[in-house]
Computed example of a mutant assay.
Amino acid sequence: MKPAPAELAADTWRLMFDFFISSNPQRSESLTRRGLTPNDSRILNSLDTAGRPIGELARQFNSDPSNTTWVVDRLEQAGYVERRPSPTDRRVKLVALTPLGLETQTALLTEFRVPPPSLAALSSAELETLHRLFLKLSPPTTDR
């Protein structure tokens, strides 16, 4: 008897989630080499050189603004981000990537996107199927 679609979706998600979690050591190694935490990485990877208000970052990650400020302080001390005044509201400080932050963000994403050996071991047909399915699941983006 075939499982119900909801049950199959739940089992598929569990397998996908477990696969991504199992590849965490590869990502952790990249962060550890740079003295970064996963939360540092989340903030770093959500920024650009134009900048965003800390309050907006806190809302994006459903975090208390003081916790987000603490992470931004760490990133600023390391030279990855800088605070600058908003051109439209002097009460607001924007957090923006520095050249080192942009370089680090690019390097992290490059390293994070190296496929784990188990994925690279799939056949071309299996990879094509998986690729097609993930394209169908992915939101539209200009980063492909």
Results as ranks from 00 to 15, higher is better:
L119H: 03
R27T: 14
I43S: 01
P38A: 05
V71P: 00
K2L: 04
H131C: 12
D11P: 03
R59I: 13
L119I: 05
Q26D: 06
R90H: 14
G35V: 01
P85G: 10
D11Y: 05
S30T: 14
R132P: 01
A4Y: 15
R33N: 10
A121S: 12
G35A: 00
I21Q: 09
A58G: 06
S41A: 14
A58N: 05
L109F: 09
T69S: 14
T68S: 05
L137H: 07
T98E: 03
V95I: 14
E56L: 08
S46M: 02
R33F: 01
R59S: 08
L8I: 02
V71S: 00
T142V: 11
P3A: 10
N24M: 07
P53C: 06
E7K: 11
V81C: 03
A107G: 01
N67L: 15
P117M: 11
N67I: 14
A6F: 12
W70G: 07
E76I: 02
H131I: 14
H131S: 15
L135G: 09
A9S: 05
P115N: 06
R90N: 10
S28D: 15
L57T: 01
R144Q: 07
N67K: 15
A78P: 02
E126M: 10
T88S: 13
L8D: 05
V92N: 05
P115K: 08
Q77F: 11
P139N: 13
R132Y: 12
T37I: 00
L133T: 07
L44C: 03
P85L: 05
P99F: 03
T12H: 04
Q26W: 14
R144V: 06
D89K: 03
S41M: 14
A10N: 10
S46G: 05
E76A: 13
A6S: 08
N24R: 10
T68A: 14
R84P: 00
V95T: 09
R42D: 13
F134I: 08
A50V: 04
G101N: 02
D64C: 08
D11E: 13
R74H: 12
A58T: 04
P115A: 15
A9K: 07
I21M: 09
P5T: 04
T129I: 06
Y80E: 02
